[in-house]
Design a protein around this nucleic acid. Structure first.
Length: 572
DNA sequence: GCCGTTTTCGGCCCGACTGTTTTCAGTCG
């Protein structure tokens, strides 16, 4: 659905149609991809066109596509344009206009054909192209071929970005510096890294940046911007350097999201203001001081919106009305980490090592949740093993002061929906996470029933990684999420926001669906080694992106109250 | 295509960079 709308936008650009018309389809695609409500429900109740940016025409098209599986307007456009252009525009450097031109002039209908045309020197004879653009296209094609997964996991990019940021901050002359872009918004995947810095002399900062050992080559460099590609996975990094008085507006501009920023510019325009990375100006050209991002939002008479929420999924309306939650869960609120494995099952570090690492992060407790017996591949524990482990947990708790290991389990939810341990064992545990690890192939009805059945076991506290997805490598198993969350709310089952970078499960939209229903959450690290404890930060970010407040997240409570809250949830 | 408490028509966000240009179009973010 979303892809069809984006393709229509491209087709309209290719035809040279009104750019605002094309943009309308992109805006609608953004809107639909960020929905935290079921699209079918919205259509049935005829509420889709009430969303900002979606009107009658696009609503009708979405309805046609949903009911018939086809869209005549899309097919008409597609037929008017040369074959293969949708593949061509995926090549960096090649946009809709040039793609159509090359397709028409040279008859290229694929990236392979385009490469051949470049190598034969035919592209340089097309009006508007030259030898340089031919060489750039070849480089773009190479990049297109190499990048099987064009976006990278948040957790993979963050360490690289923070290293680069530190060296930029340490460059003489730099006043302030920050990451921007989807990385700062903590999106689950990021396409490139944006760094924004302020300094009086950009040139010197760019010189140092381009010499960094991570940099493979410099893509481009101007007065205020420099782009490089890293050795590491072809990652592109853009560095902007501006005067410090423009830092806040530049940071805001390059943090995005584009949709969020676009709406803000519109709001500014209504107030006779013009926002750009170079500051906020009145119509008469006078420049208003914007020392930080909070000041920018104040100028627009709205609450400050944290980066994680800037997706234009309702945060702007809420901030204008003063209804944006002020108590979003934050790293500082977290008392303990949930979901950790040790050498007892498939983890790499001992219980004591895990405990000391958690303590070093400033945490007060850590729930030890090994795999259960059915997870043979992961060294799942038999019930007897579990009792021996409790002895060691007691010893570590005596040794490591200031941090408490909680006795827990990540028990398999079996195919029938039963849990993999007897009730007599489960009732002795402080924290019971139930997860699905095998038999992902069940259909939507079966899988939904399996989970609902598991919720009937009163000893289950937390549903672990609810959809089983692995970002970019395994689809979520089919599930009626509304039904699962409805019953979780009804029965007091807490739901995990798993912070492992390839999981982030629940994902943002589902977090929002959960909190809207009053379902309580835990943020977890799913740690299999000591360094994985830092995954907790990605879980917190995902929860924030889903608008979760401190009170929605149970591991903001101290250990004793956390344990009792899990029980009270199930009892209540 | 969307939108509207000045508008149902006429606006719609803004700028950097590149390469091809003799003044600007395309791409990107």
């Amino acid at each position: 659905m979303v892809q069809i709308l984006r393709d229509i936008s491209l087709f309209l650009q290719m035809k040279g149609e009104n750019p605002f018309r094309s943009r309308a389809y992109d805006i609608a695609a953004d809107r639909i991809s960020g929905l935290s409500e079921d699209l079918g429900t919205l259509l049935r109740e005829d509420r889709l066109k009430e969303l900002p940016g979606i009107g009658q025409a696009i609503s009708d098209k979405v309805a046609e596509l949903m009911s018939t599986g086809r869209l005549s307007a899309y097919e008409t456009l597609r037929a008017e344009l040369p074959a293969g252009v949708l593949e061509l525009v995926r090549v960096p450097e090649l946009g809709p206009k040039k793609a159509v031109l090359l397709a028409r002039e040279l008859g290229v209908d694929s990236v392979d054909a385009l490469e051949k045309a470049c190598r034969e020197g035919r592209v340089r004879h097309v009006a508007g192209f030259g030898e340089k653009s031919e060489a750039n296209l070849l480089a773009g094609i190479e990049l297109y071929r190499r990048s099987t997964t064009p976006r990278r996991l948040l957790g993979d990019v963050m360490p690289v970005a923070e290293r680069l940021l530190t060296s930029v901050k340490n460059t003489p002359g730099v006043v302030r510096a920050s990451v921007g872009g989807s990385l700062r918004r903590r999106a689950e995947t990021v396409g490139d890294v944006d760094l924004i810095a302020s300094a009086a002399e950009p040139g010197a900062v760019f010189d140092a940046f381009c010499r960094a050992p991570e940099v493979a080559h410099v893509i481009g460099r101007g007065e205020s911007k420099c782009s490089v590609r890293l050795h590491d996975k072809d990652l592109q990094v853009d560095l902007r350097v501006l005067p410090d008085e423009d830092f806040a507006t530049a940071l805001h501009h390059f943090t995005g999201s584009r949709a969020h920023h676009l709406r803000l510019r519109g709001l500014a325009q209504d107030r006779g203001l013009k926002i750009s990375e170079w500051g906020v100006h009145r119509a008469d050209g006078t420049k208003l001081p914007v020392p930080d991002e909070a000041a920018l939002y104040r100028l627009l008479d709205m609450q400050y919106i944290p980066p994680e929420l800037r997706e234009d999924t309702g945060e702007i309306e809420a901030a204008l009305a003063g209804k944006l939650p002020e108590d979003l869960v934050a790293w500082e609120d977290i008392q303990g980490a949930v979901h950790a494995h040790s050498t007892w099952s498939d983890g790499r570090n001992s219980l004591e090592e895990m405990a000391r690492a958690a303590q070093a992060l400033g945490l007060k407790f850590l729930t030890v949740t090994e795999h259960s017996e059915a997870a043979i591949y992961a060294g799942g524990l038999k019930e007897d093993d579990l009792r021996r482990q409790w002895d060691e947990i007691d010893r570590v708790n005596d040794t490591v002061k200031g941090l408490r290991l909680l006795k827990g389990i990540e028990v398999d939810i079996l195919e029938s929906g039963a849990l993999d341990y007897s009730d007599s064992v489960l009732e002795q545990l402080e924290v019971v996470i139930g997860s699905i690890h095998v038999r992902h192939g069940m259909d939507e009805d079966q899988m939904t029933r399996r989970l609902l059945q598991a919720f009937d076991n009163p000893h289950l506290h937390i549903l672990g990684h609810p959809t089983g997805r692995l970002i970019q490598s395994r689809d979520p198993y089919p599930l009626r999420m509304e039904a699962v969350l409805d019953k979780a709310a009804e029965r007091g089952v807490v739901v995990e926001v798993n912070g492992k970078p390839e999981r982030l499960d629940l994902k943002t939209e589902h977090v929002r669906m959960a909190t809207q229903r009053g379902v309580k959450l835990v943020v977890s690290c799913d740690a299999h080694r000591a360094s994985d404890l830092e995954n907790l930060a990605f879980a917190v970010a995902t929860a924030r992106r889903g608008w979760a407040r401190r009170s929605d997240v149970l591991n903001t409570l101290p250990a004793e109250r956390f344990i009792s809250a899990l029980r009270e949830q199930r009892a209540g």
